[in-house]
Computed example of a mutant assay.
Amino acid sequence: MSQRGLFISFEGIDGSGKSTQARLLAERLEAEGREVVLTREPGGSPGAEEIRALVLQGDPDRWSAETEILLFTAARRDHLERTIRPALAAGKVVICDRFADSTRMYQGLSRGDLRGVVDALHDLMIGLEPDVTVLIDMDPAKGLDRALSRQGIEERFEDFGEDLQREMRAGFLALSQEYPDRFVVIDGGRDIDAVAADVAQALSAKTGGIT
């Protein structure tokens, strides 16, 4: 009997360490013999990666929140069609660095009262939630310092500053209470290996023994 596909997302404020933890989990599961697709949003497919460049670079006021919602949803739809659904159908574990919860927070909460718009578009065009969402919780000031220290070109949202980080942290924690069956919250302000161990333990408890 083939293994069931499993969809795991990682969420958190910028600089929380979620990307590192997603990679470490993928490596752990691959070492245990699981087929893993490690992907990200926005991105994860050729078309979605092109949209990524549009939304993560440039002036903070480049797009309105409404335009961002449409761009992110378009990227997510392409990602879903070309990467996520085929991998799940093949019984693989999909680990995604950000998914719809980030749009619910960054565009639906922080840039206007647009959560209902995000959810309506998600229901219409995506229709899929992760089996488990790992929220890496981090102090906003530390997260922002870490994110800005990367000195990359994809810093459009970091440029909104610490107030956005604080709002996002509160929003993500509220979202974990809204969807307690899906979320696990991990303290990201510790040693990387300690965080990874807690991620593995929490996922094992949530999924009945994936790792």
Rank of each mutant, 00 (worst) to 15 (best):
L54D: 01
A89F: 06
I84Q: 01
E66L: 14
L38M: 00
L70T: 02
S45G: 08
L71E: 10
I69V: 15
L38P: 12
E81G: 04
L56C: 03
I51Q: 01
E81I: 05
R77W: 05
E41C: 01
E32N: 12
W63R: 14
L88C: 06
I51N: 06
V55Q: 13
T83W: 01
W63F: 09
V55R: 13
A90K: 11
G47T: 05
L38A: 09
I84L: 14
G47Y: 02
L88W: 13
A53Y: 06
A53W: 12
D61E: 15
L24G: 07
E41T: 04
I69F: 05
I69M: 01
A87L: 07
R62A: 13
A90E: 14
G47K: 01
A74C: 15
R85Y: 00
S64R: 15
L54A: 11
L88S: 12
R62G: 06
S45H: 08
L29G: 14
R23N: 04
V55W: 10
T20Y: 13
R76E: 03
A75L: 00
R52Q: 02
R40G: 02
I84H: 00
A22Q: 13
I69E: 04
G33T: 15
E50S: 00
P86L: 05
V93Q: 12
A90S: 15
A53F: 01
R62F: 09
I51R: 11
V55E: 08
P46E: 14
L29T: 11
P60L: 05
F72Y: 15
V94Q: 04
V93Y: 06
Q57F: 00
F72R: 07
A90G: 11
A89S: 15
A48Q: 10
V94N: 01
E35I: 03
T73Y: 01
A89Y: 00
R62D: 14
E68C: 09
R62W: 03
L54E: 06
P60R: 08
L24F: 09
Q57W: 02
G91T: 04
G47L: 01
A87G: 09
R85C: 00
L25S: 09
R77K: 11
E27F: 13
P46H: 05
P60T: 01
P60I: 04
A31W: 12
G43R: 10
L25M: 10
V36A: 07
A22R: 10
G43Y: 13
P86Q: 05
L88D: 05
H79I: 00
R52C: 07
C96H: 00
W63I: 03
V37K: 06
P46T: 08
L80N: 02
L70C: 10
S64A: 11
L88V: 05
K92Y: 10
T83E: 05
E49H: 07
A31F: 12
T83A: 14
V94P: 08
W63M: 09
